[in-house]
Structure formats: structure tokens, C-alpha cells
Simulated scan of single mutants.
Amino acid sequence: MKRRRLMAEMNVVPYIDVTLVLLVIFMLSAPLLTQGVNVNLPKGVTKPVSDKVPPVLISVTRQGSISVQFKDKHGSVALDDLAADVRRISSSTHGQVQVLVGGDAHVDYGKVMAVMARLQQAGISHVGLLTRPEGH
């Protein structure tokens, strides 16, 4: 009678199967977890703002007031009137307008998102966010 030797090797196939199933679950569920405003992120090194048409600068202060600056004109605007003002500026520049949004570091995040939502209503698809370099 011939005896069989016991195999002392670990079978890793079930571990690989479980790992692949978890990978597929995470890959399918990750896009469902993200929410927010569509933003076109730069693909490479940033380029300077075009000098042909000056950008529209929208600032949100710590108190939540909104100001719009374009060329020599600067003034406060209500959130409800922001879309109309930006639409008017965009039509005067034949749709060639860049919008830059800057907010105080302590302003409510919801206020900045409301400004960006109004810009989306105005038909502005490219919005830049102003930042301050580290250490300044």
C-alpha cells in the first residue's frame, strides 16, 4: 500500500479571488460617492491669463458679500443678480470671458458653492479659483 504525502503548500487562489471581487466593488462604487460641481481641471502646467480680455474677478468676503470686478468697474452685487451681471459681461465680450472666483479663508463653503452655481446658470463653463501661494 502506497501512502500519499500531505501537501504543506498554502492555496492562495481563494485569496486572489476575494481581492479581485473587492477591487471590482470599490471600482464600481467610487464614482457613485463623489458629488459636486463640474470643474475642468488643467491637464498640465498652468498658463497665464490671456491679456486680450481681462478676467472677471468675483470675490466673496468673510461676511459673505459678493463683489464683481471687470476692467475698471468694481461693485457689490447680490447673489440673485450675479448670473445676470456675468451674462451681461459675457455678451459684451462675445462669450470670450474668463471668470476667477476668490473667497476669504474663513468664508462659508456653501456661499462659494452658491456663487459657482450661479455662474453655471449664467452659462460659464470655465471657472478658475484664486489661491494664495504657501507662506504668503
Rank of each mutant, 00 (worst) to 15 (best):
A84M: 09
F26R: 07
G75Y: 00
E134L: 11
P48Y: 11
N38V: 10
R4D: 04
T61W: 00
P54C: 02
V56W: 01
G128K: 07
M116P: 07
S59A: 10
I66M: 04
A114I: 04
T131A: 08
Q98N: 15
V37P: 03
A105E: 02
L100G: 03
L129E: 01
V13P: 09
L6S: 10
G123A: 05
T34N: 07
A30C: 06
N38C: 06
M10A: 13
A8V: 06
K111N: 02
A30P: 02
T19E: 06
V49T: 14
P42G: 05
K47I: 13
D80M: 14
I89F: 04
G103S: 12
V39E: 11
A117P: 02
A83V: 06
V21L: 14
I58C: 08
A30Q: 11
L82S: 08
S92I: 01
V97T: 15
R5M: 04
Q69M: 01
L33W: 04
L32M: 13
V97I: 15
S67W: 00
A30V: 12
G95I: 09
L100A: 12
H74I: 03
S76L: 08
Q121H: 10
H106W: 05
S90Y: 00
K2A: 09
K2R: 07
L130T: 03
G36R: 09
P31Q: 04
M116I: 14
D17G: 15
L22P: 10
A114H: 07
S65L: 12
A83L: 04
S125L: 08
G64N: 06
I58E: 09
A8L: 07
V97F: 02
K111S: 02
Q120D: 13
Q69Y: 00
M116Y: 01
V127Y: 01
Q98T: 15
L82Y: 06
L6K: 15
R118Q: 14
E9V: 12
R118K: 14
G110R: 11
V127L: 02
N38E: 12
R88N: 05
P31S: 05
E9H: 08
P54V: 06
L33I: 10
K111P: 00
Q69W: 00
H136T: 11
K73M: 04
